[in-house]
Design a binder for these strands. Structure first.
Length: 906
DNA sequence: GGGAGTACGTA
DNA sequence: CGTACGTACTCCCT
């Protein structure tokens, strides 16, 4: 059975636009997506439920149609279509293009006419026809072969309008629906009906006289007020009838052949859904498509791959036969049962793709000869291995005593350098995008890759699914390597890849494997201490409002208490009400009378917030302590669009430091066994220094060269006083402004943050820019340049594409402008730190020192210092960090030593 | 169990 | 109306 699905793109998207709250559907850059989301969601549902073989979507092109020519008031009186909606129509069409779903719009006709035409063609072609439209005129199309799916409410509830359903609802058969509508009128189209005649009366007349013609013929026989009213409005009724008749012979650019739906553009779907930030929808879509035979028909099916399982002892010969060619490598990894650490998963098997063949090798059966051959392939100097995501591979090999020192290429890192804003760099996606090849889907094709899939290999004998998958992946990596290498080259990132990211990955592996020692007892004490404080704060809060049923962790319940029960003034709006964030609570407390229960409540609530946050941080750390008594974070090297690292599981880059209570958490991070002290070394004001360098501003550079206190210096300039006359208030203002500048802070934002008037903030910024004109010029230029190039660039040439700089959407564009301001500064600082890490690591090794780097927190390194090395390492780290790059001003590094991270602070 | 929303920790 | 991240909690859905 062939089934044709027709959708009225405009009316469905428009319904969605009003059904879904706009503020819940917008991208990070501010693009509204509620209409696209609603339409796409409905589309996916309908496709899933109805399984059409043919799909087509009609759009209105303009309001000018043959109907407005006959009746200028047609659809008049409607509010102007909001711009927020119009802007989404092209996005809807992008979604359709990605799905390769036909769509059309035709001058002078409405979407419904196009649908009527398609419906006729579809019926003639023998299809069963489904029409999904929010316009009731479509009901006239209903018959035995045509069903209308009419959205009842929202975007998820569709009424199935068969002839019977139409009759039940309107009292007439669908072929009489237009007659009925002509009598009753359609307010949405500004077509007034006969006054005093509703659907019931109209249906009765049509039942009596057959059709509208019959009713007209018998007009003078109809009694009562309604009959008179009908006779008075006869012309209007006939006009309504002419206008609501859908045209079914529109000349269309798209016919039944184009409507056949048998493929989609997977890569484009990712692109479009990424841009729209439709994660759930994408999953839903692929869940359906993945279960359907449409998958694979368009992007190339999983290619046949002949994989040979090498016998023990066979590796050397195979490797020999590959000559000096690049080898794609993919590991299977298994977690040893006795250990808990993520970084201790061991490689159990390896798939290798060479120029001529792909092999699978079970590492459990390796002979010394195999091991030698493999070590030779992986060893420094060989530079022949390509992998996807080197870090886990290095870990897994490290665990079985093999070093992977010679990675020639990493397709994940390469893809990141090419397009750093993506959320993931899944190998399967890259294969589709660049090789037009679909990888066989395993249970786990996502970020986890083949990790922990070893249990799929049964007995290690047969070439199980996981091994075969690994082989496909190895082949894909080998094939992708040159493609991505070229793209990296085009993006100017080749040196960055080979001289920075790849060697850094090896260093990160060592940091992750080392972990940082934790004082378990101290951690537990801290937890119970914070737990007590949480309980106390909660009790105080509950006592203050004489109600212990309120969950203080629930913003919803807090809103109830604060704004309804206590009647407090409203704070800033959020999507769901009014904010109860710390700023707002502090503000509310200031509005509240001293000594009142309300004040006591707010005070206790703020305390509760603080201390629950600290407690959950501590609990997170407790859970993260490994069997070796250390915490091993994972550094993500391909997440931050600016080039920074990020830290997960646990995140050790956001351990509290600003408050005294928070700093206590840093006391639990301690020097490791066999080491003497922890050392913390950080760059002071690296982003400000980089901004000074990049801008070439003489004043700022001079300040840094003179080694003055930056904020005092700037404060003196801005306020026109001597540096030693800068008050703490002045310093605070200037400090906030200096940092804010690198983020694209506005005068408005500054005034809000400092709690000063907008005029004062504006004045501050103006004076700042007068004194530091180089900074002003630089910030302007950096955005102009980015707009021209389409990307920003860091000191090491790391690029960040910012297509939204050209957006016509102001919110989006301004967001991109702030990103353009910040990315070179934050990104260059990240570059400098990465270089410094490599230099420090190299020097520690070259000088035969036992100290090791453990953590990186953007501008800080934490080091386990081996006995007797404190001074040497202090020297070394200071030197390597401060000379990592040469700037027009010094890079200052400050170092501290101590038993704990807290004590090492300075 | 998962997602959205809110809140908050770091640089 | 200030960039870049990760995590935890609640609430509401499936």
């Amino acid at each position: 059975m062939t089934r044709l699905l027709l959708l009225d793109g405009h009316s469905l998207a428009y319904r969605a636009f009003f059904a879904l709250p706009a503020e819940n559907f917008s991208t990070a850059t501010g693009q509204h997506t509620n209409a696209v989301y609603g339409f796409t969601s409905m589309l996916i549902n309908v496709i899933r439920d109805e399984r059409p073989t043919h799909v087509a979507v009609a759009f209105d092109r303009s309001r000018q149609t043959f109907r407005t020519e006959e009746y200028a008031e047609y659809k008049a009186g409607r509010a102007k279509t909001p711009d927020e909606f119009s802007g989404q129509v092209p996005l809807v069409q992008e979604v359709l293009d990605a799905l390769r779903i036909a769509h059309a719009e035709v001058d002078g006709y409405e979407a419904d006419d196009i649908i009527a035409t398609w419906a006729r063609q579809g019926r003639e072609a023998g299809h069963e026809v489904l029409v999904c439209s929010g316009d009731r005129d479509a009901l006239q199309l209903v018959d035995e072969r045509v069903t209308v799916l009419y959205p009842r409410k929202g975007v998820s509830d569709l009424a199935r309008m068969t002839p019977e359903a139409v009759e039940e609802k309107y009292g007439v058969r669908p072929e009489r629906y237009s007659d009925l509508a002509a009598l009753v009128g359609e307010s949405a189209d500004n077509l007034p009906g006969v006054p005093g005649v509703g659907p019931k009366t109209a249906a009765k007349w049509l039942g009596l006289y057959g059709d509208l013609g019959g009713v007209v013929d018998h007009a003078d026989q109809i009694k009562g007020k309604a009959g008179q009213s009908f006779r008075d409005h006869l012309d209007q009724v006939l006009r309504n009838r002419r206008l609501n008749q859908l045209v079914s012979d529109v000349e269309l650019p798209v016919g039944m052949a184009e409507a056949e739906w048998d493929s989609y553009d997977r890569e484009k779907v990712h692109e479009v859904f990424d841009a729209l930030e439709f994660r759930v929808l994408r999953d839903r879509l692929f869940e359906y498509l993945g279960a359907d035979e449409t998958e694979g028909t368009e992007t190339g099916e999983a290619a046949e791959l002949e994989v040979e399982a090498l016998a023990p002892g066979g590796l050397a010969d195979w490797l020999e036969a590959q000559g000096e060619e690049l080898v794609g490598l993919e590991l299977l990894v298994a977690m040893p049962e006795s250990l808990a650490g993520r970084h201790r998963a061991e490689a159990t098997g390896v798939a290798l793709a060479g120029p001529g063949s792909v092999v699978w090798f079970d590492l459990a059966g390796r002979t010394p000869g195999d091991e030698n051959a493999l070590a030779g392939l992986l060893a420094e100097g060989a530079e022949r291995v390509a992998v996807h995501d080197v870090k886990p591979a290095v870990h897994a090999l490290r665990e079985i005593g093999l070093r992977l020192d010679a990675v020639a290429h990493d397709t994940a890192l390469a893809a990141y350098l090419v397009k750093p804003d993506q959320r993931s760099y899944d190998l399967g996606d890259l294969a589709i995008r660049h090789l037009h090849r679909e990888l066989p889907s395993g249970e786990e094709q996502g970020g986890g890759d083949a990790l922990f899939a070893a249990d799929l290999v049964e007995g290690g004998e047969t070439l199980g699914g996981a091994a075969l998958q690994a082989a496909h992946r190895a082949q894909a990596v080998r094939d992708l390597a040159p493609v991505l290498a070229e793209l990296v080259e085009q993006a100017g990132g080749t040196r960055l890849l080979h001289d920075v990211e790849l060697p850094l990955a090896a260093h990160l592996v060592r940091m992750e494997a080392a972990g940082i020692a934790v004082d378990r007892d101290r951690l537990d004490e801290l937890e119970s201490d914070f737990a007590d404080q949480v309980a106390a704060a909660q009790a105080d809060a509950h006592a203050a409002i004489e109600d212990d049923s309120v969950n203080l962790g629930s913003p919803k319940q807090l809103q109830q208490v604060l704004f309804e029960r206590l009647g407090m003034p409203k704070t800033k709006k959020t999507k769901t009400g009014w904010t109860t964030d710390a700023d707002a609570l502090v503000w509310l407390r200031a509005q509240t009378g001293e000594g009142t229960p309300a004040e006591a409540f707010l005070e206790a609530l703020l305390r509760h917030r603080d201390v629950t946050k600290l407690r959950s941080t501590v609990q997170g750390l407790q859970k993260a302590v490994d069997t070796d008594g250390r915490i091993h974070t994972t550094y993500q090297q391909t997440i931050a669009a600016t080039g920074r690292l990020s830290s997960v599981d646990p995140n050790l880059q956001n351990i509290p430091i600003r408050t005294e209570a928070g700093r206590r958490i840093r006391e639990v991070f301690v020097v490791g066994e066999g080491f003497e002290q922890l050392m913390s070394a950080d760059y002071s004001q690296i982003e400000m220094r980089i901004m000074a360098h990049l801008s070439g501003d003489e004043g700022l550079i001079e300040a840094f060269r003179a080694g003055e206190d930056l904020h005092n210096f700037v404060g003196a300039q801005v306020f026109g006083v001597e540096p030693d006359a800068v008050t703490p208030e002045m310093r605070a203002k200037v400090k906030a402004m200096s940092y804010g500048l690198a983020y694209g802070l506005s005068a408005f934002g500054l005034s809000k943050q400092l709690g000063i008037g907008p005029e004062e903030a504006k004045g501050l910024m103006e004076t700042y820019f007068e004194r530091f004109g180089g900074v002003r010029d630089y910030l302007g230029e950096v955005v102009d340049r980015a707009r021209a190039d389409g990307y920003t660039e860091t000191m090491l040439g790391r690029r960040r594409p910012l297509p939204d700089l050209g957006s016509s959407n102001r919110q989006r564009r301004e967001m991109a402008e702030r990103m353009a301001l910040n990315a070179p500064i934050q990104g260059s600082a990240a570059d400098v730190m990465k270089l410094a890490m490599l230099r420090v690591d190299d020097r520690l090794a070259a000088d035969g020192l036992g100290s090791r780097v453990l953590l990186q927190v953007h501008d800080e390194l934490v080091v386990d210092v081996a006995p007797g090395e404190a001074e040497t390492v202090r020297e070394l780290v200071t030197h390597e960090m401060s000379t990592a790059v040469e700037l027009d001003l010094p890079l200052e590094v400050s170092v501290g030593l101590g038993r704990s991270w807290h004590d090492a602070a300075h």
